[in-house]
Simulated assay, not measured.
Amino acid sequence: MPDQADDRFAELRAPAHWQAVDFFSDLHLQASDLATFAGWRRYLLRPPETRASALFILGDLFEVWVGDDALLPHPDDDEHPERHFQRECMRLLQEHAHHTPTYFMAGNRDFLLGPAALKAAGMVGLPDPTVLVLHEQRWLLSHGDALCVDDLDYQTFRAEVRSPAWQQAFLHRPLADREALARELRARSEARKSEQGQDPTLWADVDAATARQWLQQADATTLIHGHTHRPATHVLGERQSALLQRVVLSDWDLAARPPRADLLRLSDQGLNRLDLATM
């Protein structure tokens, strides 16, 4: 269900001058994947005539985020190249946000990205889920992990790490300890994927009934989300003769063969999927 305690959806009404907006998620930016970073950087630095009116990042922009204090200088920075990498990402985001409003919704990898990092990047934080009102329609936005209700182990873990008590205790630990723990958790995650198989279709997917419930609650017909790494459009039935659907964002991996770097662009012509790997 929505993260808000009162069970209502946040709402963002687009300014009248917005013509098109872009959505992407699951870039999993990290210093060891410079190909994906380079593709993302090219997108941010595109010429004005190709830019959207706004950008929505729907989670997992970073492979891991252990606290906003990683953006501050530390005596051991030279031993941790990931910190320099994250600071460069924030610089690029801030430069982009100067001309294009940029919104960020936390994912399962970067849910600790907080107010200080948002300010450093010039981004506006969004709760999960959020309704975007644009072109006289309501579009429901989510990272998507809260909708994978059949993955009981993950939902238990998610509830734990999203609790204020857990986050306060975690962020109180030294930065280097948090980074080491994050590496350990990533190694466990990769081991679990190896056991299940690397094919995303073998992983838990969004629950259709829950997605329909969210759409009804939001008075929307289209849900846009990431997380599952299964880019597609899924029909969820009808409500009052209106087609219900969820549109899934791609993950990004420009080192893969073939490379992956899709985004969705929403304009008055509807949703279109753009393959940045070929542009």
Rank of each mutant, 00 (worst) to 15 (best):
R162S: 04
R162C: 13
S163H: 05
P164I: 07
P164C: 05
A165T: 07
W166I: 02
Q167E: 11
Q168H: 06
Q168F: 04
Q168S: 11
H172M: 12
R173V: 05
A176G: 01
A176E: 12
A176D: 06
A176H: 03
A176S: 08
D177V: 04
E179H: 00
A180V: 07
R183V: 02
E184F: 06
L185W: 00
R186T: 04
A187N: 04
R188L: 15
R188W: 14
S189V: 07
A191T: 00
A191L: 02
R192N: 15
K193N: 09
K193Y: 12
S194V: 07
E195V: 08
Q196I: 10
G197M: 11
G197N: 12
G197P: 10
D199A: 13
D199Q: 09
D199R: 00
T201L: 14
W203C: 07
W203T: 05
A208L: 12
T210P: 09
A211Q: 07
A211V: 10
Q213L: 12
W214Q: 13
L215R: 15
L215V: 12
L215M: 15
Q216T: 02
Q217V: 06
Q217W: 07
A218M: 03
A220I: 05
L223S: 01
I224K: 04
H225Q: 13
H229Q: 07
R230M: 09
R230V: 03
P231D: 13
P231S: 13
P231I: 14
T233C: 03
H234M: 09
G237T: 05
G237L: 09
E238W: 04
R239P: 00
R239I: 06
Q240T: 08
A242K: 12
A242E: 15
L243T: 08
L243V: 09
L244Y: 01
V247F: 12
V247H: 15
V248G: 03
W252K: 04
L254F: 07
